[in-house]
Computed example of a mutant assay.
Amino acid sequence: MSKPGAIHLAALCAALAVSGLTKAARAETIAMPPGLSIQLPEGWVLEGSPEGVVSKTGLRRVQFACESDACEQTQETCTILTRDGQMEGDGDAGKLREMYASPLKRYSRLRAVLRATGPDAGIRKPLERVRIGDREWYRVETDARHNYKSGLYAETVIDGRYVGVICKSCETGEERHSSGLQIMKSMQSNAGVSAPH
C-alpha cells in the first residue's frame, strides 16, 4: 500500500473510532435518589442536580429537557417525581393497585392532569394500568389546546416507594412522548447495588 493510501486508511480508522466513541457517549445514565437510575435519550440533558428539589411535602422533582434540533419545535421536557418514604400496602403491585382503587381517586387524578395541561384540555389516553418496560404503571395522556403542551402522566411503585413521571410536548401528531416512554423503560432500581469506593 502506498504511503498516502496508508495515511488515508489510518485517518479513516481514527474517524470511525471517534464516531464510535461519540455514539457510545450519547446515552447518558443518570443516578438519582432514592436509588433509581435512568438512561437519557440522545439530545436530552439533566437540568439542575440529579438530587432534584424536594418540596415541603417531601416530593422530589428531577428535571430533564430535550435540546436537540428535533426538539426545537416540540419543546419536550420530563420531570421525575419521587418520595423517599415507603408507601402503605403489600408489595409494589399491591401498593400500585391501591393508588386508584376508588372511583374518587381516579376522578381526582383526571381533574388534576387536565388542570395541569391547561384550559380546554382533553383526555387523549385514559387513566389505565399499562406495562411500560419492566413494570406496571398507571398512565394517562392529555391533549392540549391553544398552544399549551400535551402531557404524559404516569405513576408506579419501585422498592415500595412512589415514582411519578410527567412529560410534556408541543407535538400534536400521533407519535408523542416517545422519548418520555424511552426514559421510563430505562428506569432501573439500584437497590442493593453498592456504590463504588
Rank of each mutant, 00 (worst) to 15 (best):
R139D: 09
R139L: 14
R139I: 02
V140N: 12
V140M: 13
V140Q: 13
V140Y: 10
V140T: 14
E141Y: 06
E141T: 11
E141H: 14
E141P: 05
E141S: 12
T142G: 08
T142H: 05
T142F: 03
T142N: 08
T142M: 12
T142E: 05
D143T: 09
D143G: 11
A144G: 07
A144Q: 07
A144I: 03
A144Y: 08
A144H: 05
R145L: 12
R145S: 15
R145A: 15
R145G: 13
R145M: 15
R145P: 00
R145I: 07
H146R: 14
H146G: 07
H146V: 12
N147P: 00
N147G: 05
N147C: 04
N147E: 14
Y148K: 10
Y148A: 14
Y148I: 01
Y148R: 14
Y148Q: 15
K149P: 01
K149E: 12
K149I: 00
K149M: 13
K149R: 15
S150R: 03
S150C: 06
S150Q: 06
S150L: 04
S150A: 12
S150E: 02
G151M: 13
G151S: 06
G151V: 04
G151K: 01
G151E: 02
G151T: 07
G151F: 04
G151Q: 11
L152N: 09
L152E: 06
L152S: 08
L152K: 06
Y153M: 13
Y153C: 04
Y153P: 06
A154H: 09
A154E: 10
E155W: 03
E155Q: 10
E155L: 03
E155P: 01
E155N: 12
E155G: 06
T156I: 08
T156L: 07
T156C: 07
T156P: 09
T156G: 08
V157Y: 11
V157Q: 09
V157P: 04
V157W: 05
V157M: 05
V157L: 10
V157N: 11
I158H: 00
I158D: 03
I158S: 01
I158P: 00
I158Q: 00
I158N: 03
D159T: 02
D159I: 02
G160W: 07
G160L: 08
R161A: 11
R161S: 04
R161H: 09
R161F: 01
R161P: 05
R161M: 09
R161L: 06
R161C: 02
Y162A: 03
Y162Q: 01
Y162T: 00
V163D: 01
V163K: 00
G164T: 02
G164A: 08
G164S: 11
G164N: 07
G164M: 07
V165Q: 08
V165L: 14
I166R: 12
I166G: 05
I166F: 11
I166L: 13
I166S: 10
I166T: 13
C167K: 00
C167I: 00
C167F: 00
C167Y: 00
K168H: 10
K168W: 04
K168Q: 14
S169A: 04
S169G: 01
S169I: 02
C170G: 09
C170M: 15
C170H: 12
E171F: 03
E171P: 03
E171G: 12
E171R: 11
T172A: 09
T172R: 15
